[in-house]
C-alpha cells in the first residue's frame, strides 16, 4: 500500500533500527494542556525552600539560583496536580482556574 494510513507516523523503511528513541525526547510532548488549574507563585511569600522543585512529579520547576531565590514553573509540562501548592510551607502557591 503506497498511500499511508491516515494515522501512520512513518514508513516501515524509515523507522530507526530497533525501534528506538532519542534520550529525553518526551520534551516535545507538552503535557501542560492536561491542566485545568495552574500554580501561581506569590514571590513575596516564597522562602526558596525548594519543596515545589523536589516534589513536582513532572519536573516543572526550575531553580532560578541564589540571586533570584525562587523556582520558576515551566507550565508547558504542568499537569495541575497541585502538589506544589499543597506542600508549600508558606502557602505561597495558589492553584487558580485556567481561563478558557
Amino acid at each position: 500500500m503506497n498511500k499511508p494510513a491516515s494515522d501512520a507516523l512513518a514508513k516501515a523503511g524509515d523507522l530507526p533500527l530497533g525501534f528506538t528513541a532519542k534520550p529525553g525526547s518526551t520534551v516535545a510532548f507538552k503535557t501542560g494542556d492536561w491542566r485545568s488549574v495552574r500554580p501561581v507563585l506569590d514571590r513575596e511569600k516564597c522562602i526558596y525552600c525548594g519543596f515545589c522543585y523536589y516534589y513536582c512529579p513532572d519536573g516543572v520547576y526550575q531553580d532560578m539560583g541564589k540571586d533570584e531565590k525562587y523556582y520558576k514553573a515551566d507550565l508547558d509540562y504542568c499537569k495541575g496536580c497541585g502538589i506544589c501548592a499543597h506542600e508549600c510551607p508558606k502557602k505561597a502557591i495558589e492553584m487558580t482556574l485556567e481561563e478558557v
Binding site: L9, A10, A12, G18, F19, K22, P23
Partner: peptide
C-alpha cells in the same frame, strides 16, 4: 553491534508501539 546501550550515546530501546506505528515496526 548495530545498536548499543552506550553511556556516551544513549538510546532508548523497547518502546511502546501504538496503533499508528505497530504495523510499520513489524513490517520493518
Amino acid at each position: 553491534p548495530s545498536l548499543q546501550l552506550d553511556i556516551k550515546n544513549p538510546i532508548s530501546i523497547g518502546l511502546l508501539g501504538a496503533p499508528e506505528c505497530y504495523t510499520e515496526a513489524r513490517k520493518a
